[in-house]
Computed example of a mutant assay.
Amino acid sequence: MSGKHYKGPEVSCCIKYFIFGFNVIFWFLGIAFLGIGLWAWNEKGVLSNISSITDLGGFDPVWLFLVVGGVMFILGFAGCIGALRENTFLLKFFSVFLGIIFFLELTAGVLAFVFKDWIKDQLYFFINNNIRAYRDDIDLQNLIDFTQEYWQCCGAFGADDWNLNIYFNCTDSNASRERCGVPFSCCTKDPAEERPILDRPEFHAPFLTFPRRCR
Rank of each mutant, 00 (worst) to 15 (best):
K4R: 06
H5F: 10
Y6E: 11
G8Q: 14
E10R: 15
C14F: 10
C14V: 13
I15T: 14
K16L: 06
G21Q: 00
N23G: 01
F26R: 03
L34I: 15
I36D: 04
V46K: 09
L47K: 04
N49V: 00
I50W: 12
S51L: 09
D55L: 02
L56N: 12
F65T: 05
F65I: 04
G69M: 09
M72L: 15
G76C: 07
A78L: 14
G79M: 04
C80P: 01
A83N: 00
E86G: 01
F89S: 00
L91M: 15
K92N: 02
V96F: 11
V96Y: 06
I100H: 03
F102W: 12
L104D: 04
L106M: 14
A108S: 13
K116L: 02
D117S: 13
I119M: 15
I119L: 15
L123G: 03
I127M: 12
N130P: 03
I131D: 05
R132V: 15
A133K: 01
Y134T: 03
R135I: 08
D136E: 15
D136N: 14
D137I: 02
Q141G: 03
L143F: 14
I144C: 10
E149T: 07
D161W: 12
D161E: 07
Y167F: 13
V182I: 12
S185P: 09
S185R: 13
K189H: 12
P196R: 08
P201E: 11
F207D: 07
P211V: 07
P211T: 12
C214T: 14
